[in-house]
Every structure is written in C-alpha cells, then in structure tokens.
C-alpha cells in the first residue's frame, strides 16, 4: 500500500485546487456530480487492474463499452419492459468478450496486447457495420436512471469497489497477483495460471458492461461513447502505481488513479483549457507515471509541490 501514497496526495491536491476554482464542488450536489462522472472510469480502472496485475493488458474495453451501449439502445428501443432482460444480456456480453480474450491469450498464447487490440478492432468494426455509423433505437427511462441519478452511480461504484477489494483479499486475488509476479513459481505452487488470467479478463469485460450501462444513461447513445476509454483506464491504473507487467499495486490505488485523472480533466476544464488537450495530457501522464514508477522518490517529491 506504500506505493499508493503518492496518488492519494496528488488526488487530494487536485480536489483542493478544484474546490478553490469552483466552490460549488464542495456542495453535495457538486460533489455528487463529480462522483457520477468518475464512476464509469473508476469501474473500468478496477476491471483493468485485475488484468494488469496478472501481467496482461485489456485494450478492448473502450470498444466493448460502445458495443454495450449501442446494443442496449437497439434492443430496448424505448421499451421499458425490455430494460431488465437487456441489462442481463449486457452483463453476459461483457463476460463473454472477457472469456474469449482470456482464452485466446492463455490457450492460443497470443500476447494479450495483440488479442485485445484485435478484439478492440473487431468490436468497433462490428458496431460500425451494425449501425452504419449512426446508432438507432433509444434507451428506456429505467435504463438511464443508473447513469443519470448520482445516487445510483455512487451506489454501483461502491459495490464495485467493495467487491474488488474483497476479491483481492480472497484466494483468487492473492494467487492472481502471484501469477503476475512470477508465473513460474505460481504454477509450481499449484496455481491454475490460465484460469486465473481468464477470470481476470472476464472481470474486465464485466466492468466494461457496467461502465457501459452507466455511460449509456450519463452520456447518451453514440458510436463514440467508449472511445479511448481503454487508454484512460490503463492510464488510471498506472497512475495508481500499479506496475505494468504485473505483480504489484493495489486495486484501491488504481481506482484512485481514475479519480485523479478525472479530477485533472475537471480542473483543466475549469481553467478553460480545451478538452482537445486531454489526449496530450493523458499521454504525458502515462509516460510520467511509468517513469516515476521506476524512480519512486521523485514521485513522492513531486506530489506535494503539485498542490
């Protein structure tokens, strides 16, 4: 957990800076709005954490989010009675994509970077083919409530965080980290390495499904809804001090990374810096975070001065 301290300091600093620029942030409604905005990315980061800590990547989650939203809109098409069956279907799709990613990576031994890059392209292509670029249909009120009502979003976020923490404390989580740290030693200790990794991909897929459900209500239906979310999620995880390559880092810190990233975007926004800069900022952050992971002390020194 020691590695995670810098990210909490940075996050605290950013939150103070936001509050200074915009006092509304400190009111319950303002803070709730922030949480609602963070929730999808935080959930994706939690899912991505499981994959990264096991030593892999999941680049497919952004496209998967889009698929989830587009499929939901088309199948529900404004029909309230379809809400729950479709929600169930979305969860199944998420788990299934994760399962395929996991099986291809472990059984066919395709590096996950390639597997999930392929999945990302396949899913984007499928959405484009199916919608012709313009998604049809509409979400139901019952569906949109999850992303729109701050209370729901926060509740779901809480459940996700709690589940993630509990999973990481359970045998599954501990052996998953062991796999990411030293696959060979884990295998020779009887760990089912492939099974652990497949489950990690399924958790990531599930997190994309949940994030998609929230984003559908929050941001509406479009073929761009999930765009670049995979990179945001990975940036968040890395920002939380989780080491690419696996075996090190805490899930709460990964989630804090998502909060930090969103807080930074909010702050840039408040200071009138164009949203177009977001990508560049993200690029700088991910490189800086990985570099700082190599030299821990500078990261610690940097954090207070940021305030």
């Amino acid at each position: 957990m020691k590695r995670a301290i810098p990210i909490f300091l940075v996050l605290a600093g950013l939150l103070v800076a936001i509050a200074a620029a915009n006092p509304f942030f400190l009111e319950p409604a303002g803070f709730l709005a922030f949480l609602k905005r963070v929730a999808p990315l935080a959930i994706l980061a939690a899912g991505q954490y499981f994959v990264i800590v096991s030593g892999e990547f999941d680049l497919s989650v952004g496209s998967l989010v889009t698929v989830e939203v587009v499929v939901a809109a088309r199948l529900i098409d404004g029909d309230e009675s379809m809400t729950w069956p479709v929600l169930a279907l979305l969860i199944v799709i998420g788990l299934l994509v994760g399962l395929v990613n996991g099986l291809v990576t472990t059984k066919l031994r395709v590096p996950s970077f390639i597997t999930t890059l392929g999945a990302m392209l396949i899913l984007s292509g499928a959405v484009f083919l199916w919608t012709g670029g313009a998604p049809r249909g509409a979400l139901s009120q019952g569906f949109r409530v999850f992303g729109r009502e701050g209370v729901w979003a926060v509740l779901i976020l809480l459940v996700v965080v709690t589940t993630a923490v509990l999973l990481m404390r359970a045998d599954f989580g501990r052996t998953l980290v062991a796999v990411g740290d030293n696959e060979k030693a884990a295998r020779l200790s009887g760990v089912r390495v492939d099974r652990a990794r497949v489950l990690a991909f399924m958790i990531s897929g599930l997190s994309a499904a949940i994030a998609g459900i929230l984003l559908g209500g929050f941001a509406g239906v479009s073929a761009q809804v999930g765009q670049s979310l995979e990179f945001q999620a990975i940036t968040a995880v890395v920002l939380g001090g989780v080491v690419l390559g696996g075996g090190r880092g805490h899930v709460v810190a990964a989630i804090a990374g998502a909060f930090t990233l969103e807080a930074l975007f909010t702050l840039l926004n408040l200071h009138g810096i164009s949203g177009a800069l977001e990508y560049a900022v993200q690029g700088v952050i991910i490189i800086a975070a990985v570099a700082a992971g190599g030299l821990r002390l500078p990261a610690l020194r940097l954090s207070p001065s940021k305030v």
Partner: peptide, 29 residues
Amino acid sequence: LVTEDRKAEGLVLNQSVRDNALLVVRAVG
C-alpha cells in the same frame, strides 16, 4: 518441491512472507 532456483521458481518476490507462505493452500483451495 523446494526448487533449485528459489527466486525464479519458488517465490513471488514482490509479495509478503504471508502471501508466499499461503500460496500453495490458496492455489489448491
């Protein structure tokens, strides 16, 4: 099996003593 190369095959070095000691029982549930 206590392997010859404990760093490469025996231990998960970045994890705690506790996590290492419990690795086998956790793995086999």
